Simulated assay, not measured.
Amino acid sequence: MANQSGIDDRNKLESNLKSDYSNEVYHTSIMEQYKLYAEILDQHHNRFMNTIKFFISIQFIFLSGFLIIIKKEVVMGIFGIIMLLLSGIFICAIWLMISKSHYKLTTAKHETLEEMETYLPLKPFFHEWHEKLKSGNNYINMRTVLFALPVVMSIIYISLAMVAIYG
């Protein structure tokens, strides 16, 4: 059904008109796609949690390296300390970029789920985000935490490098 501008009556989310399906098939299809998409979002979160674990493990390796140098268990020149520092900051920069990418993709997935909820009787994702989380003063957006961790680690590396060089 095209209107006068040549654009059909579907919204950006729909690929077919409701009239292309029987009423039962239409509603069943929406529910199944919604459940699948919510599951995909959950899997995306789980993969990202594994990514965070990976970067935290790497951080412990760099922290251990600095502590060994500071305790003078290994003698390393200024060049070695600076290379360790730059490597740690580089890893933190990659971690931050991946976190930003994850957050952007997760936001898009949540927005898509909210659009899908307009076809359902209840809107749990919309309600949770817009009514529950945004109304509370004690909620800290995960973006703040995800973006702060690599920055804090970089500052710690700079401090440890200064102690290793001057201490």
Rank of each mutant, 00 (worst) to 15 (best):
K134N: 07
I94K: 11
F66A: 05
I140Q: 08
H127R: 05
E114F: 02
F90E: 06
S99D: 13
Q43R: 12
F48V: 01
N138Q: 03
I81A: 01
F54N: 04
V145T: 12
A93R: 09
C92I: 04
F60S: 07
K53S: 14
I69L: 10
K134L: 13
L86M: 13
F66M: 08
P121G: 01
L85R: 08
G136R: 14
F54A: 07
L63E: 06
L67I: 14
F90Q: 03
G80T: 05
L149E: 09
I68Y: 14
Y139Q: 06
F66T: 04
E73A: 08
K71Q: 11
I140K: 14
M49V: 04
L84R: 10
K71F: 12
F48H: 10
M76I: 15
I69C: 08
I30W: 15
E39S: 12
K53I: 08
S135M: 08
I81H: 01
I91W: 11
K35G: 00
N141R: 12
L122M: 06
T107I: 03
M142N: 11
E128A: 05
F60K: 08
H102P: 01
K53L: 13
L41M: 10
I89N: 05
Y37H: 06
A148Q: 04
K100E: 06
E128M: 08
G65D: 08
T112E: 12
E114P: 00
F126G: 00
H102M: 10
G65Y: 07
L133T: 00
T112N: 14
N46D: 08
K109T: 01
F54K: 11
K123T: 05
I82H: 06
L113W: 01
M116G: 00
L36H: 06
I68M: 05
I78T: 14
M83S: 11
Q59H: 15
T107F: 06
L113K: 01
K123H: 11
I98Q: 15
H44L: 00
Q43I: 06
A148T: 09
K35T: 03
L146F: 15
F79V: 11
I140D: 08
I69S: 13
C92Q: 10
E39K: 13
S101R: 14
K53P: 00
N141P: 02
H102W: 10
N137E: 02
I58K: 03
V74N: 07
D42G: 02
K132L: 06
K35H: 07
M76S: 13
L149A: 12
Y103I: 11
Q33Y: 03
L96H: 13
